[in-house]
Simulated assay, not measured.
Amino acid sequence: MKLATLTLAATLVTGAAFAAEIAPSDVQFDEYGAVDQSLTGTPGNPEEGEKIMTNRGLGNCVACHEVSALDYAAFQGNVGPSLDGVADRWNEAELRGILVNAKKTYDGTVMPSYYRVDGFVRPGNAYTGKAADDSFGPLLTAQQVEDVVAFLGTLEYEE
């Protein structure tokens, strides 16, 4: 009972800081492009992350990246690096930062910024500079980003 009470108290104290979803414009990056704080305060679901990575209407990560664990996903790409062992190369904060805005870590990358809504140069003057309040929301929701981070966290090199 004592452990349950302590766990509940710790959750209430730390959970209050994460109660609200972080808006794309409020995401805080460290000097290397990592995002330490969860965007939702809710752990990601690796199963949902896998669906997002393979769904053409969502993340479609396999269009550019190879992931051996997703051998059922046909026509995996080779534009980006293989994601095999990605959890051994980057920590959760680094993976989140790359998903939110890869350009913070890799200047000049062609990887989409999945949780960014401003600062784009879009084709045509009617679209350049438009932000989320102009109906251009992020490519993925905050929870979808957390789900993909959770899935990527499962991709370790086999020993």
Rank of each mutant, 00 (worst) to 15 (best):
V121T: 15
D30V: 09
A74P: 10
R96Q: 14
E94K: 13
H65D: 01
Q28R: 12
N60C: 01
P43S: 15
R116P: 00
Q37Y: 00
E92H: 04
D26N: 11
L39E: 14
L95R: 13
L99C: 07
A69C: 02
G108K: 02
Y114D: 03
D84C: 11
D88R: 13
I22F: 07
N78P: 00
I22V: 15
D30G: 07
D118S: 13
K104W: 00
G124W: 05
F120N: 02
G85Y: 11
E48R: 12
K103W: 01
A93H: 08
N91S: 11
T40N: 07
V79E: 11
Y32E: 15
Y115F: 15
V27G: 08
P43Y: 10
K51S: 12
A9F: 13
W90L: 15
R56H: 06
E92M: 08
Y106L: 06
G119K: 05
E21Y: 10
S82C: 05
N91Y: 04
Q37P: 00
W90M: 14
D36F: 08
F75E: 13
A73R: 13
R116L: 13
T105G: 01
F120W: 11
L83G: 08
F18M: 15
L99G: 05
A73H: 09
F75H: 13
L58H: 07
L95H: 05
N91C: 06
A63G: 09
F18C: 09
V117R: 02
T109P: 06
A73C: 06
A69V: 12
C61P: 02
Y106D: 01
E66I: 01
V67N: 04
D71A: 03
S38C: 13
P112H: 06
F120S: 02
V117K: 00
K104D: 01
L83I: 09
V62Y: 02
W90S: 14
L83H: 10
N91Q: 10
A69H: 08
R96W: 10
L95I: 14
S82Y: 07
E50Q: 13
R96K: 14
R96V: 14
T109A: 01
Y72M: 06
V100T: 11
A87M: 13
E92W: 04
R89K: 15
S25G: 08
S25Y: 12
A87I: 06
T109Y: 01
E66L: 03
M53I: 12
E47K: 14
T54S: 06
M53P: 03
D36T: 07
P81N: 04
G49A: 12
T54F: 03
A63Y: 03
